[in-house]
Design a protein around this nucleic acid. Structure first.
Lengths: 351, 351
DNA sequence: TGTTAGCACTCATTGATGTGGAGTGCTAAC
DNA sequence: GTTAGCACTCCACATCAATGAGTGCTAACA
């Protein structure tokens, strides 16, 4: 935005041409190529002069003396912020993603990353919706064995968790019923912050000899409602797509990248970052582009990462991400993410 | 076994020496090395003669003229079957795997693969116990919304599944109770094969206007009990360990291998194969070694795979696997798997 | 007959060298 | 302001020789 003004129209066109050619080929692009590529009808010499300027301004880089130029991080940034938009309307056919309606969200998510990965040829990730200040909807204790209870906890958004509780001593059906009633009347509609110690100890009193069960159940409840960072499941796909881009495929880089995918906790950085900046309401599209150094994760400084949050209302939101080389096809990626965002809204609102 | 007899003692020692040196170094081993390595006190020339014989017999291979020798698949096989055992008693200190007791099996499994991967420096996989002819233990329908029921199905082994059922029309608490009773009395203790169409249609009759709910519940039951191959979750870890072995680390191979890990369905082949042969009761240790071509998966012909089944009694069993280069440290791997097997038994029997 | 020393030979690996070509920067002319 | 021309740079690639690990063979030895 601020930098863009120092560029006249011709420079912008040339820069755009350079970047686009580089996106396709992945190899430094020279002045002759551009002189043919554009409809400016300029000789390579003129282009060379302009390119020299562009390099001085920091938008392109010469990997070594007398080689072609490649975009710098700043160049990509300008391209994403401004140059790309001018073309945006052109290609925008909405591809129908074939997501069959399944009951389990987990499956949907796994399918989504998979489709996205094969659509874009990049590595992809997705998190399920995380529930901020989620409220308790329903608790059900059932006897499933002599000394075992099953606690089923349902939170808002129909997030179901269950936990087996091993008892110290047998419990009859009637007591189970009583406990059920107690738990539901006391805890129903509360969020995790609202369940305080006082309340728990009061309930334990009322439960009499079975106070330890109350403790276990409250634990289960806490687990069901609180979705802390560790809990958060991140699904990934297409990690091996990075082998398709020579600049990332050499053994050491690939190893690091794929490790990051496997461990997943580095990916959580993006989720956190994206969530934060989407709260600050930048742009409003909820789409975030990290180019090279802009990434919060060091191991991904040779990559670009594009993330989007999908928002299901009611405080539930998740994150989708695409990780690829810096020369990723930003237009296509952003496009894909946008349509996917809508689709996810659609699916989950129905469910 | 049958082939082993054509080898005299000296040849066996030399072969063993060759293999062990190769396991360490990963490079073709020459005669001079062996002449120093062994306590046979033979000159390199003599060793050369023996090696020539061993090559003719098919146990070792010369990658190119006048290079050292590397073990062939047959060589590894002999090593695993016979040579290795002679040393087995030596190193067998049981490493205590620090598996903290958690409630969720999923977490235990994820932790186990992780530990195993970092212990062995190979890629690892594990499946949860699959339940053959599993029986229904308990069904609980609960109303969680105006038009929504939650079906919780508990099968033997405390395998819990839940499913949200969307109703066509509201249902009052009383009906829910009645349905609960109906389902439990009819289906309790049955395995999936025993639930036939006749039974379902009879239940639908008794359910009256809510017959569609019965259908949904039975579906949920089926899903909970039947653990078909697709359902089966395979957890993996340490996929990037393959980068540590140059013979697997070149881009094309690594890409294929890691893809296989990501997709997981190739890994299911091993699970199936291992299960079958463990049923046939070979050896009795339940540990299976696939060397190179012996593998049922083509993409892993440059690897060796060692699998083990852990058995929890009651028809529940799962599979652990380690995937590495052919020159993997078989002794250590087998050892690790054995102790892990025991630990898993221990953990899950407690749970 | 089994073992060993010696020697010629093979072949992957490594580093040096040279060439071709893509691309630049600069200058001079239009 | 634009362009043609030219010298220059530097990577990529191929070629070549030197190196050295390792073999196979032969002949001598115990």
């Amino acid at each position: 935005m601020q930098l863009g003004n120092e560029l006249d129209e011709r420079k912008r066109i040339i820069l755009k041409a350079i970047i686009q050619t580089y996106l396709e080929t992945g190899e430094p692009v020279g002045s002759r190529t551009i002189s043919k590529y554009t409809d400016l009808n300029l000789s390579s010499a003129t282009i060379r002069n302009e390119m020299s300027d562009l390099e001085e301004l920091g938008y392109i880089i010469q990997p070594y003396t007398s080689a072609g130029r490649i975009p710098s991080d700043a160049g990509y940034r300008l391209y994403v912020d401004e140059l790309m938009k001018e073309k945006e309307k052109e290609v925008s056919e909405i591809k129908e993603l074939m997501i069959e309606k399944t009951d389990k969200m987990e499956k949907v998510l796994k399918q989504v990353v998979k489709i996205l990965a094969s659509n874009t040829n990049y590595a992809t990730m997705i998190t399920g919706p995380t529930y901020h200040r989620n409220k308790l909807k329903f608790i059900q204790l059932s006897k499933v064995g002599e000394m075992q209870l099953l606690a089923v906890v349902v939170a808002e958004g129909n997030l179901v968790k269950n936990q087996i509780i091993n008892l110290q001593e047998p419990m009859d059906e009637e007591t189970v019923l009583k406990l059920n009633l107690l738990l539901n009347t006391q805890l129903n509609g509360l969020s995790i912050e609202e369940i305080n110690l006082k309340m728990i100890s009061r309930m334990k009193e009322q439960a009499g000899i079975h106070s330890d069960v109350v403790g276990s159940v409250v634990d289960a409840v806490a687990k069901a409602i609180a979705t802390d960072d560790e809990e958060m499941e991140i699904y990934t796909s297409g990690a091996t797509n990075i082998f398709k881009y020579p600049e990332l495929a050499d053994t050491s880089k690939a190893s690091e990248l794929i490790s990051a995918f496997e461990e997943k906790q580095e990916l959580a950085e993006f989720v956190k970052d994206t969530m934060e900046s989407s709260e600050n309401g930048e742009k409003g599209t909820g789409i975030q582009v990290y180019i090279g150094n802009e990434s919060p994760v060091k191991t991904m400084q040779d990559c670009s990462v594009v993330t989007a949050t999908y928002d299901l209302g009611g405080g539930m939101q998740g994150t989708i991400g695409i990780i690829g080389p810096k020369r990723m096809d930003y237009e296509n990626v952003v496009d894909n993410l946008k349509t996917l965002k809508n689709q996810l809204d659609h699916i989950f609102k129905k469910t």
